[in-house]
């Protein structure tokens, strides 16, 4: 942190330079600093490129889960008033989600309810590991981090059609429309 403080004047100077860079046609808007982008960019894609430093295991996640999650999701992730997290029969992490990175992304941005965004990176890794372990996808001692998490093969990884990358075209009929 102190290191960052020392850097601050330099960064301010740098951002003064980039502030001049506005949109080319209308000269509006300003260029965000690297720091601003990092702070805003909480979207984690399937490749996990945006995952931050940190790590956690299911063992570490267990106590955290009991404290932060069990009230709504139940002691084992199969009870409670919130959606089920464990099991094969419903749309859970284990039965449905194709990428483990989405678990990290969602816990980090939206959980726990009413305290969204309050968990540290280590805590999110630990909770993600706990859910993967409870769904019998990893071992209890497996550490989840920016490197290991994107490599997890989820059970339903191939349960979907391949992503229709940019297949949408204007005027395209809906794929399952009933034509006369």
């Amino acid at each position: 942190m102190r290191f960052l403080n020392l850097l601050a004047p330099v960064l301010t100077l740098a951002s003064c330079v980039v502030v001049l860079a506005q949109s080319p046609t209308y000269g509006l808007g300003r260029t965000p600093s690297e720091q601003e982008i990092l702070a805003w960019d909480i979207a984690v894609g399937p490749e996990g490129k945006e995952l931050p430093a940190g790590s956690g295991t299911a063992k570490e996640g267990e106590a955290l889960y009991a404290r932060k999650c069990a009230a709504c999701h139940g002691p084992t992730g199969t009870e409670g008033k919130a959606p089920r997290l464990v099991g094969r029969q419903t749309r859970t992490v284990g039965s449905y989600w194709p990428f483990a990175t989405s678990i990290w992304d969602y816990i980090n941005r939206a959980m726990p309810i009413y305290q969204e965004g309050s968990l540290s990176a280590d805590e999110v890794y630990a909770l993600t590991a706990f859910l993967l372990f409870k769904n019998a996808i990893i071992q209890e001692s497996d550490a989840m981090d920016a490197e290991s998490l994107p490599k997890i093969q989820m059970p339903n990884r191939n349960g979907y059609q391949p992503p229709p990358v940019s297949e949408w075209k204007p005027g395209m009929p809906r794929p399952f429309e009933i034509l006369p």
Binding site: A43, V44, G45, P46, P83, R91, Y96, W97, P98, F99, S102, D105, Y106, A110, G159, Y160, Q161, P163, P164, V165, F176
Partner: peptide, 22 residues
């Protein structure tokens, strides 16, 4: 590529045998 947030992989999907993200 699509980023597949919560609403794209556990809700608002086409989840029969022709399951699709979008």
């Amino acid at each position: 590529r699509p980023y597949l947030g919560y609403k794209e992989i556990s809700r608002y999907t086409r989840d029969d045998s022709r399951s699709s993200w979008f």
